[in-house]
Amino acid sequence: MSKELLGIIFLPAGIIFMCMAALFQMYVMMTETYTLNRYRDKALVWRVAVLFLSFSLGVYWLCPNARKKGILFLILGAGGALMYGLARVWLPFSR
Rank of each mutant, 00 (worst) to 15 (best):
G14C: 06
G7R: 07
M30K: 15
G7Q: 03
F17H: 05
L44W: 06
V59D: 02
D41Y: 04
M20S: 06
D41L: 01
Y34A: 15
I8E: 14
L62P: 08
K69R: 15
L62C: 12
G80S: 02
N37G: 15
M26I: 04
L72I: 15
F24L: 13
M20W: 12
K69F: 13
Q25A: 10
L76T: 02
G85I: 12
I16Q: 05
M20V: 11
N65H: 13
P12H: 09
C19D: 01
T31F: 00
M26W: 13
K68T: 14
A78T: 14
G80Q: 07
L23W: 04
V59R: 09
L76G: 01
R67A: 03
Y84A: 15
A13M: 09
I16Y: 08
K42E: 02
Y27E: 10
P64M: 05
M29P: 02
G77I: 06
L76E: 00
S54K: 13
P64G: 10
N37K: 11
C19Q: 10
W61R: 14
Y84N: 06
L44S: 11
C19F: 14
A43Q: 13
I9P: 04
A49D: 09
M29Q: 06
V28P: 00
Y60Q: 09
F10V: 01
F17Q: 12
L11G: 08
Q25W: 05
L11E: 06
G79I: 00
L44G: 02
L51H: 12
I16A: 07
V50F: 14
G14Y: 01
L74C: 13
V59E: 03
Q25N: 09
I15K: 00
A13V: 10
A13Q: 09
T33Q: 14
F24G: 06
I71V: 14
R38K: 15
L6K: 08
F24N: 06
Q25L: 10
G14L: 07
K68R: 15
A13K: 06
L53T: 07
I15E: 07
F55G: 05
L11W: 05
G85N: 12
L5G: 05
L44I: 10
E32W: 05
M20L: 15
L82W: 06
L82K: 08
R38W: 12
A78C: 08
M26V: 10
I16H: 06
P64I: 04
I75E: 00
I9L: 15
I71E: 07
L53M: 15
Q25T: 03
R40Y: 10
T31E: 14
Y60I: 07
G85P: 00
L76M: 03
L44Y: 15
L57H: 04
A78Y: 03
R47S: 10
K69W: 05
M18A: 05
I71D: 04
A81N: 02
F24E: 03
